Lab assay of single mutants.
Amino acid sequence: MDEEYDVIVLGTGLTECILSGIMSVNGKKVLHMDRNPYYGGESSSITPLEELYKRFQLLEGPPESMGRGRDWNVDLIPKFLMANGQLVKMLLYTEVTRYLDFKVVEGSFVYKGGKIYKVPSTETEALASNLMGMFEKRRFRKFLVFVANFDENDPKTFEGVDPQTTSMRDVYRKFDLGQDVIDFTGHALALYRTDDYLDQPCLETVNRIKLYSESLARYGKSPYLYPLYGLGELPQGFARLSAIYGGTYMLNKPVDDIIMENGKVVGVKSEGEVARCKQLICDPSYIPDRVRKAGQVIRIICILSHPIKNTNDANSCQIIIPQNQVNRKSDIYVCMISYAHNVAAQGKYIAIASTTVETTDPEKEVEPALELLEPIDQKFVAISDLYEPIDDGCESQVFCSCSYDATTHFETTCNDIKDIYKRMAGTAFDFENMKRKQNDVFGEAEQ
């Protein structure tokens, strides 16, 4: 370990593993360490099931009705991949897709007046949907046509809207959309967690709705994908990429100290040895004095023996409960997957309800979601602090990732990755940087 590296990475969460992969592909010498004996950090999948019970201090362990412990891979952080989103792009560019198998999530649902409705995925579904009345549908269709044709580089498509100054509230007004449709559009399509976006320039919202539609167009059922064997497969896929390009991995490796000289990182000390480096990437748990708390998320993992009611017996789905429907500031989400994804025993389902904490009784906040899941065989409640770095790391060369937020997709995580890359490399992130180099010394032969 007593060696000189360009970059040392602490923690094998998804953000850290993707950055480690990119740095290795770009010719950097990388050492990647984790104090845990497993990959994934906060974003790991726990197996066998006995391990999950232990982690949540349920000492009696799983009953026999849960089947074989080894058949379970339970995500600690519930997220899906947008089919046309940035993480899929990263997987394709790096060819990490060859280590993973994905399934399309069967449906996306939205909560309205105590019931759940399928988010329409085709024009026919939209016309048949009970989510809105006849005239509302016509106006909504006009709005969707506007979004589909919108091109930020072609003012002819703006229809009198200025993407940089017109607020989204004004765009909704222009198409005369009612409150329910606005809730549905902002939260189930643009996937905002709160209503803060309404008074911001509309460009980002329009682009988010386009991303949803384009992702949906790829597979038809929903815009989301999920990897077989759980999300823990993602960091491992990128760790393989890093290793192929010469990255060194050490799990179960305690970090005793991060060594600084004149305010700059110069190395990491572990078990009496020092590895030197020019730059350091880590998750917040490794540098508690360089991060601040930015809120909390509650996630309740529920094991069920039945599909969720009114989802047409889907073996995977997402449910969004827009905040307006339950008098909150932030949406509540449910991600459900099952034995069909090799993450649970035969006939079992895993539904994870999550939201940003707003009160001193977080469990009560998630109740509307839990009511949709009854009866629940077993619950595991996790309340996590969200951390963000206190500075950009440019001076110390210590670059810290943000905690995983309450969103049900990876777009915010990818933004964090691109942002850290830019601060480390001094140049904007470009997907081309992730391409495997042809015929290089570490390149794998085609399968």
Rank of each mutant, 00 (worst) to 15 (best):
D2N: 08
E3Q: 01
E3W: 05
E4Q: 12
D6S: 14
V9S: 02
T12G: 13
L14F: 03
N26E: 11
V30A: 03
V30F: 13
D34E: 01
N36I: 01
Y38F: 06
Y39W: 14
E60A: 05
M66Q: 08
F80C: 08
V88L: 05
L92E: 04
T94M: 15
V104G: 02
V105L: 04
V105A: 08
G107Y: 15
V110A: 09
K112Q: 03
G113K: 05
A128D: 00
S129P: 06
L131I: 05
R138S: 06
K142N: 08
L144Q: 10
F146Y: 08
V147M: 03
D151H: 05
E152S: 07
N153K: 12
T157N: 00
R169W: 14
Y172I: 14
G178R: 13
G178V: 04
T185A: 11
G186D: 04
A190V: 06
D195S: 15
L198V: 14
L203F: 11
L203S: 15
K210E: 05
K210R: 09
G220I: 15
P223A: 10
P223T: 00
L225S: 02
Y226S: 07
Y226C: 10
Q236W: 09
Q236L: 01
A239P: 03
Y245N: 13
G246T: 04
G247R: 01
P254T: 02
N262D: 10
G263R: 09
A275F: 11
K278C: 10
K278I: 06
Q279E: 01
I281L: 10
P284L: 03
I287D: 11
R292Y: 07
A294P: 02
Q296H: 07
I298C: 05
P307W: 09
C317P: 01
Q318R: 07
V326A: 11
C335H: 14
I337D: 10
G347A: 11
K348G: 12
K348I: 14
A353D: 00
S354G: 08
T355N: 00
E363R: 09
K364V: 13
P368Q: 00
L370M: 01
E371K: 11
I383C: 12
S384M: 10
L386V: 13
L386Q: 15
G393C: 04
G393W: 03
G393Y: 01
E395A: 05
Q397G: 00
S403L: 07
D405C: 13
A406V: 07
E411G: 10
T412K: 00
T413A: 12
N415D: 10
D419Y: 01
Y421W: 07
A425I: 11
F431P: 06
F431T: 04
E432S: 12
N433H: 02
R436Y: 09
K437Q: 12
D440G: 10
V441R: 11
E444I: 15
